[in-house]
Amino acid sequence: MPEADAVPEAPEAPEAPGIGRGPGRLLLSLYGVFTVAALSRAIVQISMQFDEAPLAYTLSLVAGIIYAVITVALWRGGEAARRLALVSCTVELIGVLVVGTMTVVDSSAFPDQTVWSDYGIGYLFLPVIVPISGLLWLRRSGPQPQQTA
């Protein structure tokens, strides 16, 4: 939790209840679900039919790992975790947009579905919505302008 890396000279901003609280807790839950979904999907596909679409299945695995990183970061909290989550959410959003565009433009780019195909249409578009909400939330829950080296 926040006091894990207590920096002596950094006065706690009043609005730093942790990135995993409030709306962050909802995000944490969603990321948890997506971690389980993407990782189990990737593991099943890689172990049973890897040769069919190695790229797509590897991508599912990468997506699952990114989701796992964000879940853990939200759970742990703290400024370092917040930055890690910001970077991961950005990577995730770029991934969804790139893969989504590729699959829409050229459906043969990925022979099998991934979580990010067609902008995550198979997952209620949550793969696009969640990283955007995540980025907004993480920006808002960051430290207010002060000298944070």
Binding site: R21, G22, P23, R25, L26, S29, L30
Partner: peptide, 14 residues
Amino acid sequence: TERTRWGSAIVAAG
């Protein structure tokens, strides 16, 4: 673990 409106939102999402 989240005794606010967001805890309800989590169950709604579930």
